[in-house]
Simulated assay, not measured.
Amino acid sequence: MNVRQDAWSDKDDRLLANTVLKHIREGSTQLKAFDETGDMLDRTSAACGFRWNAIVRQKYEHKVKEAKRERKMRMRASAKQAANHINPARHSSFLTTMDQIINYLEGTADQLEQGFHNQSVEEIEKEITSLEHSKESLQQEISNMKKEYAAMKRDYETIVHMMNRAREMAMTEETIPSSNIFRMDRNGNLEKLSI
């Protein structure tokens, strides 16, 4: 069996997982983790994201939850530290609001992440297949239009050639003295006049 040269190794998967987990713990985005991993592995960030969502994430689900928990704890500790610099008696509403904001942002981030991961690999592959079919259809349409354009161009050149030839013949007839002269009568019929 041939092994693809661009196949993912276990080492590549571990590097991808560790980078994503680090970014989650630090409060960064997975997209940045995919960019960083792509640079290290000489792959696109899209390939890293696809690999993470399709294969690697399931193996590290527990560690992802743990990294998110660490991030929450770190953010709360940071918020508490900032709150310690403020007089709690004067700014109790600020502390409540800050906790609400943190909780809201954490919930929103989790919702966005779930929405992204709910899109299955099959759905993504169907969308890719659909886009490829659309591309082929458009390429066929372009090819047909090019053929029609070429035919119209040939017809146009033929008409121009015929008009030029008719013009040349008309000019030649004007220079040759004509012995026959015609006139149109009232009924629209041509009658020959004798000179």
Rank of each mutant, 00 (worst) to 15 (best):
E148M: 10
N164G: 11
S194Y: 13
E174T: 04
N87V: 04
K153Y: 07
R90W: 13
D155P: 14
K32L: 13
E125D: 10
D42E: 11
Y104C: 00
D99T: 00
K126F: 02
A170G: 00
H133T: 01
I24C: 03
L193Q: 10
T29G: 04
M73L: 10
M162R: 09
A79K: 04
L138C: 05
I195C: 02
T29S: 15
K63G: 00
I102C: 03
S178N: 07
D12L: 03
E132V: 02
S134Q: 13
I86E: 11
Y149P: 11
H85M: 07
I24M: 02
D10S: 06
I176R: 09
G49D: 01
E106L: 05
D39N: 12
M145R: 08
N144G: 12
S178A: 06
E106P: 00
K63H: 10
G49F: 00
F182N: 10
A54K: 08
L41D: 01
K147N: 13
N187K: 12
E132K: 10
A7D: 01
L131R: 14
V121Q: 11
A82F: 11
I55M: 10
A166V: 07
D185G: 05
T44K: 02
N87E: 09
M1R: 06
N118P: 01
G107W: 02
Y149I: 08
Q114F: 05
H117N: 14
H161C: 11
T37Y: 02
R165V: 12
P177L: 04
R154C: 04
L41R: 02
T175K: 14
K192W: 05
E66N: 09
R4I: 00
K153F: 09
D10M: 05
E125A: 11
N118V: 00
Q5S: 15
M169C: 08
A17Y: 03
Q139D: 15
A47V: 01
